[in-house]
């Protein structure tokens, strides 16, 4: 089953341009100068129901615009989109019963009231009966570990606590699809983990599909099976997250610590030395050019190794590389 089907989606904004200063303001008053910005250009993709899809890209790539079109808030300038069988900008209200949305930068909970009040309000807005709402709240409080937070005014919660309540609120009406626009923005590591675990659980237990935009490669690694990378409103990369790693994570970082002081020359063909100390060394090399075992045997020849770490570079670097390649193309 396909839950999102987008074909040649386009969105052009008219932006007013104005020269700096008073003169510019006056001129723009009489003769406004508009320029078009293509936020989304011929975007086509599909998402299956129950899928965890990452939608990433730099600022201004068109991610949020796409999400807003998919929720029916914005009308596209061209192209087709079906979300759960609805055309979002025509059936906005009908679609709203079946999708949940969280915009990381904008709270939907009532700020001065305890989250429980918003939960009950959402129950009414989504036309659930009171017993059903209560049952659902009980379930979500347990899944998101927010039992003790529900009676506290939202403004008194930490950002992490608030986001857990935000995501839980968006799931109250059992949506089939969750659209998350940067849900982890500004959160600390533990809070991110909490949210990711809960989202994963909802995906596994209730089969809710998740379309997630994020700047955080960690969200992508932890949650998504497939990723779409957009830049300048176009798809620049689309594949499974595991393939993304295999294809682009060809660089390895090796860090070695020796039992005693070593004075060997670590220079090997194709290996970049990042740091050398008396007791250890840190290297970087490309596995397609230099064999891993030759590097390891060279290192172990230098002395007794007490600790060795082999790691991939952060996914962020990989994504930055993809952006750059797309930029250069």
């Amino acid at each position: 089953m396909v839950s999102i089907d987008v074909t040649n989606l386009q969105k052009t904004f008219q932006t007013k341009r104005k020269a700096a200063g008073l003169g510019g303001s006056i001129r723009s008053l009489f003769k406004p100068d508009y320029s078009s910005v293509e936020a989304v250009r011929n975007l086509s993709f599909q998402m299956s129901s129950g899928e965890l899809l990452g939608f990433i890209g730099p600022n201004g790539a068109g991610k949020s615009t796409t999400i807003k079109i998919l929720t029916g808030i914005l009308h596209p300038s061209g192209g087709e989109a079906k979300v759960l069988g609805f055309t979002p900008w025509i059936d906005r209200q009908k679609l709203a019963y079946h999708i949940g949305t969280v915009f990381g930068q904008r709270p939907q909970l009532w700020y001065h009231l305890p989250a429980m009040d918003t939960f009950i309000l959402f129950g009414k807005i989504y036309e659930l009966d009171d017993v059903e709402t209560k049952k659902r709240i009980d379930f979500l409080t347990e899944a998101f570990e927010i039992k003790d937070l529900l009676d506290v005014p939202v403004r008194k919660l930490s950002l992490g606590q608030r986001m857990r309540c935000e995501v839980a609120a968006s799931l109250l009406h059992r949506p089939k699809l969750l659209l998350l626009d940067e849900p982890s923005i500004g959160l600390d590591v533990v809070a991110k983990q909490h949210i990711r675990d809960a989202i994963k659980r909802m995906n596994q237990e209730e089969g809710v599909g998740v379309l997630l935009t994020s700047h955080d490669a960690g969200d992508l690694e932890a949650l998504c099976k497939r990723v779409i990378i957009v830049n300048h409103g176009q798809i620049v990369y689309e594949d499974k997250v595991s393939n993304l790693k295999r294809k682009f994570l060809t660089t390895k970082l090796v860090e070695v610590r020796y039992a005693m002081e070593v004075s060997k020359d670590f220079a090997i063909q194709g290996v970049e030395i990042l740091k050398v100390g008396h007791y250890g060394v840190k290297l970087k090399f490309d596995t397609t050019k230099t064999a891993v075992d030759s590097v390891i045997s060279h290192l172990s020849g230098a002395g007794d190794i007490v600790d060795i770490t082999i790691s991939d570079p952060p996914l962020e670097e990989v994504i930055a590389k993809i952006y750059q390649e797309a930029e250069n193309a």
């Binding site: 929720t71 808030i73 009908k94 709203a96």
Partner: peptide, 12 residues
């Protein structure tokens, strides 16, 4: 732009 976030619920 917060009008966008009021528009994503099933009400008039």
């Amino acid at each position: 732009g917060s009008i966008a976030y009021i528009l994503n619920k099933p009400y008039d």
